[in-house]
């Protein structure tokens, strides 16, 4: 089968922290089925305008047809960061917003693109920070990046900055990877809290992971919300924004 004949089906969910409004969620997802590009981003809560930054990063990355190498990231971020920060300079900000804006916005990001050829479908991924890609084949995790162990979450990862002054060396922080796709492979893009849960539960409680897969298959939004609420209540899942984007290859 040619790579271009393979079908990609997608399910996605986005939920804010418990107690916050959907409009306060700082995670973002975007996809382009035509370009076969999928991504999630996690705006840093303590930074300025990170929700908008996460949305901008995902929207522009999914719509682009490049941005899969370390070298491409710095000039791209400089342009996009400038676009974001121009909005702020048009306003008179109170001292505290001005102080936050001076440091700019930050976000973790992971993007996945499928590139078809005559014989196969290759995937390529770029990631910065603690948003993750997991590839599952026949029920087993075959790739997890940029973090593969649940204990490795919770530290201060490098993030994508909007501020031009903080861009120096950002290319070195980008994880770039690629691999082959097999029929029925599943790829899941996750922001940090649910990624940590996913990696831990795959090892310790695979039934919970299967339940999540069923909810994603059924696009069952109320079921997903109850599921997350339950996992948060029993402290398996940290109370953080949640973004999940799953792609199944058939």
């Amino acid at each position: 089968m040619k790579g271009s004949d393979w079908h990609l089906s997608v399910a996605q969910f986005l939920l804010p922290k418990a107690g916050l409004l959907a409009s306060e969620c700082e995670d973002a997802t975007a996809l382009s089925l035509r370009q076969r590009r999928f991504c999630v981003a996690d705006g840093a809560t303590e930074a300025y305008d990170s929700r908008r930054w996460a949305k901008l990063l995902t929207r522009y990355w999914a719509a682009s047809n490049h941005l899969l190498t370390k070298d491409e990231f710095e000039p791209w971020l400089a342009r996009l960061g400038n676009h974001l920060e121009r909005r702020w300079s048009r306003k008179t900000l109170p001292w505290y917003a001005e102080e936050k804006a001076r440091s700019g916005a930050f976000a973790a990001f992971v993007g996945l693109a499928f590139i078809p050829s005559e014989e196969r479908l290759v995937w390529q991924a770029v990631a910065v920070g603690d948003s993750c890609l997991v590839q599952i084949r026949e029920g087993v995790i075959v790739t997890a990046l940029p973090i593969s162990e649940p204990e490795a979450f919770g530290y201060h990862p490098a993030l994508l900055p909007s501020n031009r002054q903080r861009l120096r060396g950002i290319g070195e922080q980008v994880t770039v990877a690629s691999g082959d796709t097999a029929q029925h492979d599943t790829f899941v893009l996750l922001t940090d809290a649910i990624a940590a849960w996913y990696l831990r539960s795959t090892a310790e409680n695979p039934l919970r992971v299967q339940e999540l897969a069923r909810l994603l298959d059924a696009r069952d939004t109320p079921g997903f919300e109850s599921f997350v609420e339950r996992e948060r209540a029993d402290k398996s899942l940290r109370n953080d924004d949640v973004a999940v984007l799953r792609i199944t290859v058939d």
Binding site: P94, W95, E98, R102, Q165, R166
Partner: peptide
């Protein structure tokens, strides 16, 4: 507290200059 400081002074603050160094900038300090 944020909206009602007694006054806003001006202070020098060191911020990254984009080339690996720091540059001094005047900022409002409540």
């Amino acid at each position: 507290v944020a909206d009602l400081p007694a006054r806003l002074d001006s202070r020098a603050k060191k911020v990254p200059d984009g080339a690996g160094g720091l540059v001094e900038q005047q900022v409002r300090f409540p």
